[in-house]
Every structure is written in C-alpha cells, then in structure tokens.
C-alpha cells in the first residue's frame, strides 16, 4: 500500500507529513532512551528483513498480490509501537528515495499508515489479545492481520479525501484485498517472531513483558 506521489495533492500530503513527523520525533525520543549497542543487530536485521520481504509479493487471487508490511512484527519484537515507527520510517526512506516505491511527498502518509497506524494497532491489539488468550501465535496472527487491514482502510479514506478513489468502492476493495493480504501478514509475523526468539531467547521477555505491561 505504498502511495505514489500522484495519488495525494501536495497540501494534503504536507498534512500527513506533519503528523508523521510528530511520530518520527517521538520514535527518535523512544530510540534514544531504549537503544544500546546490544540492540543494534535486532534493529538492523528487522530493517533488512522487512525491506527484503516487502519486495516479495505473494498472489492473493482477484488479480492482486500483497506482502508483509511488518508494523506489528517490529512493534512486538521491540516492545513498543515506536519501534515500528522507527523501523518502517527507515525502510520507507530507502524504498522511496532509492527505488521510487512510495512517493516522496506521500512518504508522510505511508509512514503514518504503515508505521504509525500499523505499529499502534499491532502493538496494542497484541497486548490485549495476549492477556485474553495467553497464546503468542494467536495474538500475533490477529494483531498482524489488524495491522494490515486497519492501515488499508485509513489509506482508502486518504485516497477518498485526495479525490483519487470514491469512498465506498475504495474502502470495499482496499478492505477486501487487505483482509486476504492480512493472512500473509499474520502468518509471516508469527513465524518471524518464533524464529527471532529461538535465536535470541532473551527477547522472549520483551515480547511477554510488552504483553503484561
């Protein structure tokens, strides 16, 4: 759901940039407090992994494909929604500047959708679900599904405000496609969390503590 430059008029794109910048600022404050030499490998691997897997579009039928976005994954593994904002901002900068995947003027909207909304929805729904189900895979799957689906709806509303999509067909199509793409998001998020925790069992406490907080 990388929005290209042409899809949002400049004044609206500027508003999304402004909102995104507030969250980028907050994520930098989070990172300054939380980051240490020890955390660098996880940050680097998340950035590289999310960048790479975002290029791996899988078919979801209906003439459409989708890939992992990674907001929920980053937020859960880093124990904060600001972790997702931090990682997704870095990934979106590389994608936009180097590859033209997502516009420059619309990068604010893309950071807002995938980093901020994806990160917050993913993190807080994971917390709530962990309390209710006590199951990491169930909680992470649903949280990641929501972290794909809700940003897609936000994107559809932005496209309506921009005059690019009509409201109802835009919401219906974005919702339908991302409801299916969300299954990819959920499955890969669960597998990736399992993989990272098996390599670094000390992260188990971040994931669980995050859920208990």
């Amino acid at each position: 759901m990388h929005i290209p430059d042409a899809f949002i008029p400049l004044p609206q794109a500027a508003v999304y940039w402004l909102i995104a910048l507030i969250f980028i600022f907050l994520s930098i404050r989070w990172a300054r407090k939380e980051m240490s030499e020890e955390k660098i490998p996880l940050i680097a691997v998340l950035a590289a992994g999310i960048f790479a897997i975002q290029a791996f579009n899988l078919p979801v039928g209906m003439g459409t494909s989708g890939h992992l976005v990674g907001g929920a994954l980053a937020a859960i593994l880093l124990g904060s929604p600001f972790g997702a904002v931090f990682i997704l901002t870095l990934v979106l900068i590389v994608q936009g500047v180097l590859f033209g995947d997502g516009g420059i003027t619309t990068m604010g909207a893309n950071i807002l959708n995938m980093g901020v909304i994806g990160g917050f929805v993913g993190y807080y729904s994971f917390q709530g679900l962990m309390k209710a189900t006590k199951s990491m895979p169930v909680s992470a799957f649903i949280a990641a599904w929501l972290a794909c689906f809700i940003p897609a709806l936000a994107c559809a509303v932005e496209m309506y405000l921009a005059g690019t999509f009509p409201l109802v067909p835009g919401l219906a199509a974005m919702g339908l496609y991302h409801a299916v793409i969300g299954i990819i998001e959920g499955a890969i998020t669960v597998v990736a969390i399992r993989l990272v925790i098996s390599a670094k069992p000390d992260l188990q406490s971040t994931v669980i503590r995050g859920a208990a907080a």
Partner: peptide, 20 residues
C-alpha cells in the same frame, strides 16, 4: 528472501494498485 523475491514474487498489482 530478497533474492528469491526477484524470481518468485507475483507481478500482480498490490492491494492499492489493484484498487486503483
């Protein structure tokens, strides 16, 4: 993953492009 994506990724439009 990135290398495999070059050969295996679907060329269908993504959700946003498909909606467009």
């Amino acid at each position: 993953v990135g290398g495999l994506a070059v050969f295996l990724a679907s060329s269908n439009p993504d959700g946003l492009e498909s909606t467009a």
